[in-house]
Amino acid sequence: MDARYAFRVRVRLEPARADVTLEPGSAETSITLFREAAEPGTEGWLFFRDTLWRGEVADEDYARRLAAEWLGVPERTVEAVDFRELQTDEAYFDALKAEIATDLEAFKAENVSEVLSKYLGSSIRVTDSTG
């Protein structure tokens, strides 16, 4: 069982020394960042519910703080974070749907499909392997 969240993060590079400068046009870079998805029902598995809405980052400031923490860079250097997709194998996806189904009320939804659409939109890619 394997799944991960994919984000596109735009960061601004800042020199560590005052005697070093960067050309403004070369000081930004975009990277794809992957964060492992916690196993459904375990601590952290509700990351999608607490962070995403309709397949987008729900709170930009919070997402920038998270990305800065994950990358080990100052928060001020993270300029944008975009959610790309949940990449999951079939076993994880089945377990996720089963866990959601146990408490639809917590998601204020009538069925699992509504929950997936509400938080992940169409940004789910089921593969044989996320590696």
Rank of each mutant, 00 (worst) to 15 (best):
E90K: 09
S113Y: 03
A63W: 00
D61Y: 04
A95P: 07
P74C: 07
A109S: 13
N111A: 02
K118P: 02
V73F: 05
S122K: 10
Y62R: 14
T42G: 09
D128A: 15
L13H: 12
G25I: 13
M1Y: 08
T102Y: 01
S122Y: 07
W45F: 06
V57G: 04
A37L: 11
F34C: 10
Y92L: 01
T88P: 04
D59T: 00
F47R: 08
A106Q: 00
F83H: 03
S26R: 11
A68E: 09
Y5E: 03
D82Y: 05
A16C: 04
E28H: 15
A80R: 15
G72R: 11
L86I: 01
R64Y: 06
T88K: 01
D128T: 11
A27C: 11
V73H: 05
R76C: 00
A27R: 15
D2C: 10
R125D: 14
R65A: 04
D19L: 05
E69A: 09
T42A: 13
A101W: 04
L96T: 08
V112M: 08
T32F: 13
E36S: 15
F107V: 01
A91T: 07
V20C: 12
L96G: 07
F7I: 09
R35Q: 12
G41W: 09
T21S: 15
E23P: 03
T102S: 12
E56V: 08
F47P: 00
R54W: 04
T29M: 14
K118R: 14
W70E: 02
D94V: 04
D94E: 14
W45D: 07
G25Q: 12
Y92C: 03
